[in-house]
């Protein structure tokens, strides 16, 4: 069975935020404050003028980490949050009671309340929009001009993401919490 994850060559990111637009367009995310499934974090340059380290200013694209041991799934009182196909963390809006416990529990700020359904929403790796239609990439990956993102099956040793992770060093975010995140930042 597949186990989907995403590797990010984050040093290639130019902060054009086409991924944010593509995500909103593909998944019908509303154009409202707090309504975003993915975002690009901006790490400011270090040092004081004139000794500023330009290389230290980096951009960190982020989204739901689709943790293998997801705190949001553990805390859900109605199992509205569940592990879907390919180990993706999904939300069933028919079961969501909007207690927002999962939003509190998520260490990555990956969840928000959708105004239309009045339930919690998050990144699905485009599983219901693109993957269900036979595509093998997510909208954010397909639109990225500098090829930051590589989406694929972590359990397939020949997949592009597995080969990349086998040959490159990477780091994960807040992995000390034991969440086993599936977003890998290539160093």
């Amino acid at each position: 069975m597949a186990r989907y994850g995403m590797a990010l060559n984050y040093k290639n990111c130019i902060n054009c935020r086409a991924c944010e637009s593509a995500c909103k367009e593909e998944n019908g995310v509303l154009l409202l404050p707090d309504h975003y499934r993915i975002w690009v974090g901006v790490k400011e340059a270090e040092g004081q003028f004139p000794n500023i380290s330009i290389a230290s200013q980096t951009y960190h694209p982020s989204q739901c980490q689709h943790c293998d041991n997801a705190p949001c799934q553990q805390v859900c009182p109605t199992n509205a949050t569940y592990y879907g196909e390919g180990g993706m963390v999904m939300v069933d809006p028919t079961k969501c009671i909007l207690c927002t416990y999962c939003i509190n529990a998520c260490p990555y700020d990956a969840r928000y309340v959708d105004n239309r359904t009045n339930t919690v929403d998050k990144c699905t790796f485009c599983s219901d929009t693109r993957l269900a239609a036979g595509e093998t990439t997510t909208a954010c990956q397909a639109t990225c001009p500098t090829k930051v993102r590589v989406f694929g099956d972590l359990d397939d040793p020949n997949s592009e993401i597995s080969l990349l992770l086998a040959n490159k060093e990477y780091r994960q975010v807040k992995e000390h919490l034991g969440t086993k995140p599936k977003l890998f930042y290539i160093l």
Binding site: T78, N79, A80
Partner: peptide, 12 residues
């Protein structure tokens, strides 16, 4: 405060 109290009663 709970967004869907009836859903809570059912799916609990």
């Amino acid at each position: 405060e709970i967004g869907h109290p009836m859903t809570m009663l059912i799916y609990n």
